[in-house]
Design a protein around this nucleic acid. Structure first.
Lengths: 341, 341
DNA sequence: CTGTTAGCGCGTTCAT
DNA sequence: ATGAACGCGCTAACAG
């Protein structure tokens, strides 16, 4: 491996001059600059990043913590985050917490060990008081996740509004008994959605039956189970279900078809995230679209600012809003056709 | 930030002793070891990884290059790879090439800059002759991708067999005119599948009509387009289609339902990868299952060996085999029911 | 404009 | 069993 020293010798100059060329410093004569470039070329020289990090006290790397890459919402987020990062000449490293608090801490340690300049947290597994301590070592930005007590930037969607509007839509479609379904219980995201759901119900004078709550639904298989538990229930079944995940919704729709239920007639279903699968199912699934790209861009913008200013603490809220996409899983085709566009 | 020096002072010992404790070196008395541990605890000391990398000439990080995290085949691969890496006390960094040759080179440069100890390549975008040069800087292991000329370890599935067996299944179901569909043209993976496809056709005395070839199909939307191009073709339509992607297959099945075609009666469809969606579509989709976990484990095992031995070149083939999963998109439900299990 | 020098934090001889 | 000293490769004063 060629080092900066080798390049300097070959060019007949000092390390400093070579370093200046690398870092596009002014005050280097054209001729010497050219000499250095040639030497670098000939030796196939590339700066050693560990040495640079050590010297500069920064790595140019940002960690994004997500639960799992297989979750399409998060992988879509990553797509945009990465693009934005490279625009700012930073690299992204993607860390999967697998919903494990311990793994999350392992990755937060990247800040301590100086392997990354900042951490983007999309779904906190640990209590905020635990996470907060890492702010001594670098900036943390919450994206998607939010936390009342947190003294850091937060970029998130109004989840309460999402729960509210989707549920209100179901009510407008004539449903009076609506089931609720979300992923892990203790997430702020889930509880905000539930608030919105309850608010819509309350406004319509409806009651929320705890038997209609499913709070551990993540996969399409969970959706299948939920459908069957509804189907086999004798009387007093819900006629609609709000879900916090397109995959779960797809599982419900799929299993409903196999049981010869007609959707939305026998059961109306809403999903969440507007993933590809919602358009492939039959009927297509009504869903909540999140402004993922805008959120990702804002997140990176805020992160860059924090890194630049070395300002790790300080609350900052950036709220985004959803869009309800109405399809056949909640509205009869005939009704949809009547909508002018 | 506390450094090793701070810890040494606090413990009233030398840096060397502290370093020995950190690296679990023998020849440190119990008492002093305890003292060091205490000092580290009190100061919240964490070793600086840049300094360690610089000194040790290794980072403990491995890069995995994949086209996109949103592709479920690759994200599943990553799940297992990451698990295996952490078992070997290594970290994984996930790099998306976005099918861009230029981006791929950017990431291969991580080897040159010593940011990673090795690179796992799952889908090569550049010609092998270009990639080969990076072998001067660290080990490269091909996983999923393969390349006749490559002098590195390759872990892959027999794609030709997959194309052959899936196609043979369609022939056994009575089809005589079968369409072929794959992703990007110039991939070795795709061409091996096509070889198998052609072989099955040839054995049955069937001809491969170029009008039945679709070679740019990646997304479910591509599947929709393909279905419509088949549907609107007047006569001489294929009665079955082999695809190299479950998403494309799902697009076809979905659009077929909307056009009131009956699958598999009007068109039989096979997918690839056994993704969740194949079980959610109606009918469920026949597909090829790859031994993803086994391949990931072998890949990491081989990578660790190469890193340990500092042996970057040397061909090594690890071939794995597929499993055909037959469902209703190729076989009438009545027929499937007759299969004993 | 250019070179000399002094660390960044750590691990490892080589002494003792 | 412990410590002193060197250098991994790079950049930023400082001096010219």
């Amino acid at each position: 491996m060629a080092t900066i020293e080798d390049v300097a010798r070959r060019a007949g100059l000092s390390r400093t001059t070579v370093s200046r060329v690398i870092n596009e410093h002014p005050y280097v004569s054209i001729t010497k600059k050219k000499k250095v470039m040639e030497a670098m070329e000939e030796l196939g020289y590339v700066p050693n990043s560990a040495a640079r990090s050590l010297r500069n006290q920064r790595t140019g790397v940002i960690a994004v913590l997500i639960p799992r890459v297989m979750n399409p919402f998060f992988s879509q987020l990553i797509e945009t985050l990465e693009h934005a990062a490279s625009e700012s000449f930073h690299q992204l490293i993607i860390c999967q917490t697998q919903y494990s608090a311990k793994k999350e801490l392992t990755y937060l340690n990247l800040l301590k060990t100086k392997q990354v300049d900042g951490v983007i947290l999309t779904s906190a597994e640990n209590d905020w008081s635990v996470i907060e301590e890492y702010l001594d070592y670098g900036p943390i930005v919450l994206c998607n996740e939010f936390e009342e007590r947190a003294n850091v930037p937060m970029v998130f969607m109004d989840q309460k509004e999402a729960g509210y509007k989707a549920t209100k839509h179901l009510i407008e479609m004539g449903h009076r008994k609506i089931a609720y379904c979300c992923g892990r219980y203790r997430s702020n995201v889930a509880s905000a959605r539930e608030e919105g759901f309850s608010k819509a119900l309350a406004e319509a004078g409806l009651v929320f039956d705890e038997r209609d709550a499913f709070r551990e639904a993540i996969t399409s298989e969970d959706g299948i189970d939920i459908f069957n538990s509804i189907r086999t229930r004798g009387s007093n079944r819900p006629t609609a279900i709000f879900t916090g995940s397109d995959e779960v919704a797809a599982g419900i729709v799929s299993e409903a078809a196999r049981s010869n239920w007609s959707i939305p007639r026998d059961l109306a279903v809403t999903g969440f995230d507007n993933q590809v699968i919602t358009e492939l199912m039959n009927p297509r699934i009504t869903t909540v679209e999140q402004p993922v790209c805008e959120m990702a861009l804002k997140t990176m913008e805020v992160m860059m600012a924090r890194i630049r200013l070395r300002q790790f603490t300080g609350r900052e809220m950036h709220k985004f809003y959803m869009k309800l996409i109405i399809r056949e899983s909640t509205k009869m085709q005939a009704e949809l056709a009547r909508i002018p566009y």
